[in-house]
Design a protein around this nucleic acid. Structure first.
Length: 851
RNA sequence: GCCGAAGUGGCGGAACUGGCAGACGCGCAGGAUUCAAAAUCCUGUCCUGGCAACAGGGUGAGGGUUCAAUUCCCUCCUUCGGCACCA
């Protein structure tokens, strides 16, 4: 019986300390405490799914928690909050199937996932918990939307301003004026060709469509014109690119965002149309190839197609346009290999040489990018080359590559060359290099009034409405006389009504449209109106949640300005790489808008970003129910404890890497904790082990201890958690071999382990005779002098091959080392009488003798 | 196709800024303890040859720079992630 007393009862210990932290509010963050530096550590908050946590979640959470606990010990005032991104499709799909209200499902799921997260002992300030589906929260999501609705973007100052400051052109009537204002709002309505997904019964953002299929569920997506709410994220394209320079993010993520925004610099060029009083404007990044433009292509949807098509081409053009319109995104991608098009029977005039060139339509030119028309230079553009070859169109070389053979092939029309070179067949510009030519021709176009420098972005405005129930309602009404009006701030939150039927109608009418007594309203002035029945996309709530954590209970403001000033920006943001473009781009956009309006004081929300890698199943495959390789965190905690779980997740490998799970690996770190426990605790009494004594540590122990303190601290700062754990294992192995273990050393081990395995650390700390929690103990200092080795082992190489190893005093000089090495038996043997040409001595590393 | 990341023992991984490849953990083998087992402890464990001392090879493949390359350069292969007619 009494043998039981001293064993490592992780389940009991973990429960005890989790209750202690909760009851004593150990991790409450103090607002605006200027006596300490602040540190804001943020996790990407989870969607509370019915499946609960998977082992991937705790990976990021553990990393952030280690940092949070470490920073507290380093004297920082740490803000470390958690919440729920709880709007979204799964709860609604479940409601459609079972009739359970999404609010109900969501509440249950949150309770479960909160329990799971708490069972891992993370040091969150739970008083700041937020939930995007709570009216007290989405009130402010709606409030930000209203601000956007009531703002416009000032091009010359490159910033958003209140709509009242918009300068309206003279001579407009009331209706035109209203239209003008509505068109300039940052949140605006438009009839746009959207990604309509019949299976989900909703439209999707470009970012949510992958290869013509919905990101969620993989259903086909079609183009369909619909009235939708849009956010003018494109106005911020330039700033979204520029300010990436300010943040400490992985380069790969920055690049992904840059590519997504897709800035290209070039020129708009105007082409006259032969026999018409019309101009076709094209955008090109290669104005230097203008002399090689042998035909022109317009998107099938281009407005001039109807006007310019000759009578004999009408029939064919009409047919082609109809086919193009019918194509889904998937079809367009599938057909990408074989280009199609029709000649419309009209000719444009090339401004540089006045040559007549045929005008075609083809769906390889997109109406939504640039001007919806291009000049085709088949000799120097892959797509144009493919098209020209298929339809036998003229190919003229205007750029000469350096390689002669290559150039000959281009001349013969057998090769397309897209690189830089020297201009030929380009009149007065012959002989100029590509980059220089670009500038010269752009200036020439500008001077002759035929074009100008232009910049285009791939980024499109953000489609912000969904035909779903479970999302934030728009604080918008449509009046009977066709006006769009916003609710006033006092009317917020506009709560989501309870409904009986969650099914989307299938024709694009959202479920809310069926709730007639909610939809129909009478405005204060007596006008009848209908509420907007679309809801906001899931991304809305997550765009600003990091601000609500600063002041979660504020009912007067989304957040208090002083608190914002104190806590922002987020110092460390940890989450999955799958949010590289979606969430991270959207929230940066909102943040910049809020910055323009003066509600936040930093340009960027997230200073440092770290992505955790995915955890695979034991079979090396992605975890999934169907494969049966899902690891349940609850089971791991029951079998090995939360500390082992945390430690293993960090020990698996580098945080950012993709790595497979191994239960035996969990057992390995569990053994390490057991070993530490046995080192400190007497297994019979449960008290301190007899071998732990108030003695001075010997030199070797002291050195290893100080080295470990340094390494663990350095590794936490650089997110090398796996190597930090390995260093602590080495130290504990060493201490285990001692007959008498210095208590002071053990205390330091417990302190540096505490961010990783806080429960066992607290328990041991208590057993070592401390009454307070160690959460705010100072991080141990290391002594620089004690770290230094007295003697160093040097490898001796002859011609780069290791022959022997010698031990020298750390302060031995080069000459002493040389003498010793040359007198070494094995070296003499290896030299076999030859004289060394050179002896390279790298102090503290090795000696290489070259013969 | 283009862009990005990565390829190291049986496995997860380590190696600072070009300086002893394989730390730490898992697994495996042998031993101690035990009536036996679990647990624990000790020893060994990159490959080839050898009883051994030792010799040779070795970080996806091939080449290069260097006294010295997992690390830098070039070519190629494989895996993963992103983009995919954006003119």
């Amino acid at each position: 019986m009494c043998e039981n007393k001293g064993i490592y009862k992780y389940n009991e210990i973990e429960k005890k300390w989790q209750e202690f932290w909760e009851n004593t509010r150990t991790f409450k963050a103090a607002d605006c405490d200027n006596s300490r530096p602040k540190y804001y550590v943020l996790d990407m908050f989870p969607y509370p799914s019915g499946q609960g946590l998977h082992v991937g979640h705790p990976e990021g959470y553990t990393a952030s928690d280690i940092t949070a606990r470490y920073k507290r010990m380093k004297g920082f005032n740490v803000l470390h909050p958690m919440g729920w991104d709880a709007f979204g499709l799964p709860a609604e799909q479940y409601a459609i199937q079972t009739g359970t209200a999404p609010a109900e499902t969501t509440r249950k799921n949150i309770d479960n996932i909160r329990r799971q997260i708490k069972s891992l002992g993370f040091s969150y300030d739970w008083a700041r918990e937020v939930n995007t589906t709570n009216p007290n929260y989405y009130k402010w999501t709606q409030w930000i939307f209203l601000k956007m609705f009531n703002s416009f973007f000032d091009e010359s100052e490159q910033k958003a301003k209140p709509i009242e400051q918009l300068r309206i052109p003279e001579g407009l009537n009331e209706k035109e004026k209203r239209q003008y204002i509505d068109d300039h709002r940052l949140a605006y309505e438009a009839e746009v060709a959207v990604n309509w997904c019949p299976a989900l019964g909703t439209v999707l953002a470009n970012e949510e469509v992958v290869g013509g299929l919905s990101e969620r569920g993989g259903h086909p997506v079609f183009r369909k014109p619909m009235r939708q709410w849009m956010l003018k994220i494109t106005e911020y394209a330039e700033r979204l690119i520029d300010d990436l320079a300010e943040v400490d993010w992985p380069e790969s993520i920055k690049k992904l965002q840059q590519d997504w925004i897709g800035k290209s610099i070039g020129a708009d060029v105007d082409f006259k149309v032969d026999g018409f009083d019309e101009i076709i404007r094209v955008f090109t990044t290669r104005p230097d190839t203008l002399f090689g433009a042998t035909y022109m292509v317009m998107a099938p949807e281009h407005r001039l197609v109807d006007i310019l098509t000759s009578p004999d081409r009408k029939e064919a053009v009409k047919k082609y346009r109809e086919e193009a319109a019918r194509k889904s995104d998937l079809d367009r991608t599938d057909l990408a290999k074989e280009k199609t098009g029709e000649f419309i029977g009209a000719y444009a005039i090339n401004p540089v040489n006045n040559k007549k060139i045929p005008i075609w339509i083809s769906d390889y030119v997109l109406i939504s990018y640039g001007t919806g028309a291009i000049m085709a230079v088949p000799a120097h553009d892959d797509r144009d080359y493919e098209f020209a070859t298929k339809y036998n169109l003229t190919i003229i070389q205007v750029v000469q590559p350096e390689d002669k053979e290559q150039s000959e092939l281009v001349k013969q029309g057998k090769l397309c060359f897209i690189g830089d070179g020297i201009a030929i067949n380009s009149g007065q510009f012959n002989g100029i290099r590509t980059p220089e030519f670009k500038e010269k021709i752009t200036n020439w176009l500008e001077q002759t009034g035929q074009g100008k420098k232009a910049i285009n972005y791939k980024l499109r405005d953000w489609l912000f409405s969904r035909q779903r129930y479970w999302g934030e309602p728009f604080p918008i009404v449509h009046t009977e006389d066709g006006r769009v009006a916003s609710l006033s701030e006092e009317d917020l939150p506009l709560e989501l009504p309870k409904v009986a039927d969650y099914k989307p109608s299938g024709n694009g009418e959202p479920p809310l449209a069926k709730v007639t007594d909610w939809v129909n309203v009478t405005l204060p002035d007596g006008t009848k109106a209908r509420r907007e029945t679309n809801t906001m996309p899931q991304w809305a709530g997550s765009c600003w949640y990091y601000l609500r954590y600063l002041d979660p209970d504020n009912s007067k403001e989304g957040w208090n300005p002083d608190k914002e000033k104190y806590w922002m920006p987020v110092d460390l943001y940890i989450g999955g790489a799958e949010h590289a473009v979606l969430h991270l781009l959207y929230s940066r956009f909102w943040h910049k808008f809020l910055y323009d309006m003066g509600y936040v004081t930093t340009k960027e929300p997230f200073k440092k970003l770290v992505n955790q890698g995915m955890i695979l199943g034991e079979d090396g495959q992605k975890m999934s129910k169907s494969r049966g390789n899902v690891v349940n965190p609850d089971k791991v905690i029951t079998d090995y404890g939360a500390d082992s779980m945390r430690l293993y997740e960090m020990f698996m490998g580098p945080l950012e890497a993709i790595k497979p799970w191994s239960m035996q690996g969990v057992e390995g770190v569990h053994r390490f904790l057991q070993k530490l426990w046995r080192l400190v605790i007497d297994k019979e009494t449960g008290g301190l082990n007899q071998t732990v004594k108030d003695i001075q540590a010997n030199e070797e122990t002291l050195r290893l201890l100080n080295q470990t303190i340094k390494k663990v601290g350095d590794d936490i700062e650089s997110f090398g958690f796996n190597t930090a754990i390995s260093a602590m294992m080495i130290l504990v192995n060493h201490l285990s071999k001692l007959d008498a273990v210095p208590k002071s050393s053990v205390e330091k081990v417990v302190l540096i382990l505490s961010p990783f395995a806080p429960h066992i650390a607290e328990e041991l700390w208590q057993k070592l005779g401390h009454n307070d929690s160690l959460a705010y103990e100072s991080w141990p200092e290391y002594d620089k002098e004690l770290i230094k080795e007295k003697e160093i082992e040097l490898a001796i190489q002859v011609n780069g091959k290791i022959k022997d190893k010698i031990v020298v005093p750390a302060d031995a000089d080069e000459e002493q080392i040389k003498q010793k090495v040359l007198g070494n038996d094995k070296v003499i043997a290896a030299l076999a009488g030859k004289t060394p040409k050179k002896v390279i001595v790298i102090k503290s590393r090795l000696v290489n003798i070259v013969v």
